[in-house]
């Protein structure tokens, strides 16, 4: 147990050093614009379709379930509020973070781990090119840029998913106008902003974990798969634990 704790502390410290080393090269960012765009494509564009589909259906299911329960209290007119707040404050950011972990985080770890195993990272070091500068920094900046975009897309799709279900499900039958009126009435800009802030933190943590695990892999090709699994599991744990503490701080 103590050994695991020491290992965790070592990894935490190493990840912080990696972040500090990346921050040292911030001024090189303008000439790494093409790398930044590549990473925006990987993190944002490739994750977008699955975010769209899943958030639409999560919004739909949320409306369906809450409509089924709230019908008993005659509170159907508040479904818009419930779906709106749930998506913006909780489900949107958490779901996007989980999807970014699975879609982009795993790809980041696999790429960096394979570069490590096949000595490409050592080659960079002997060329006096810090790996943090060209491999970590563009990814971190790209995720900070793309997470709010993905979260907003998730929110919108979830809200519209809920609206369509409310309109066309017989036992709910709340029209779109009433649904969005309720959504607007009890939601303010801070709710959306809190969700976007959460998404930023989750994205930053996920990319940090995935880069750190990829860059510290030791061994052969078999370790690449193990590193990806490790990165995903660690990221998911961090997302859910951080979610609790950030929510508590923001309420």
């Amino acid at each position: 147990m103590l050994k695991r704790f020491v290992l965790f502390c070592e990894n935490f410290g190493a990840a912080l050093i990696m972040l500090a080393n990346s921050a040292r090269h911030l001024k090189t960012l303008p000439r790494q614009f093409s790398r930044f765009i590549d990473q925006c494509y990987l993190i944002g564009y490739t994750t977008m379709p699955i975010v769209t589909i899943l958030s639409f259906f999560i919004g739909s299911v949320l409306a369906l379930q809450s409509g089924y329960s709230m019908e008993n209290f005659g509170a159907n007119q508040f479904i818009g509020t419930l779906v709106g707040l749930s998506m913006a404050r909780e489900l949107g950011p958490v779901m996007v973070a989980i999807l970014v972990t699975g879609r982009a985080g795993s790809a980041i770890t696999a790429e960096l781990a394979s570069m490590n195993v096949y000595q490409e990272i050592d080659a960079l070091k002997t060329m006096n090119i810090p790996p943090e500068r060209i491999l970590v920094l563009p990814r971190l900046v790209a995720v900070l840029f793309m997470m709010p975009v993905l979260s907003m897309v998730a929110n919108l799709c979830g809200w519209y998913g809920g609206a369509i279900v409310c309109q066309y499900t017989q036992f709910i039958s709340v029209d779109t106008q009433s649904y969005f009126a309720a959504l607007k009435r009890y939601m303010n800009f801070k709710d959306i902003l809190d969700g976007l802030m959460k998404a930023e933190v989750f994205g930053f943590v996920v990319v940090t974990i995935c880069c750190h695990i990829g860059l510290t892999v030791r061994g052969g090709p078999r370790e690449i798969g193990a590193a990806v699994t490790n990165a995903i599991v660690t990221s998911l744990i961090f997302i859910l634990v951080l979610d609790y503490f950030i929510t508590m701080a923001l309420l």
């Binding site: 790429e111 570069m115 000595q119 490409e120 050592d122 080659a123 002997t126 060329m127 090119i129 060209i134």
Partner: peptide
Amino acid sequence: AFVFQAGALFNSLSVYDNLALYPRE
């Protein structure tokens, strides 16, 4: 300069870009 046993070429870059990486960076 270090010539690695397996080459350690950057697999995502063409031969030209592998060579141009050092002077560009």
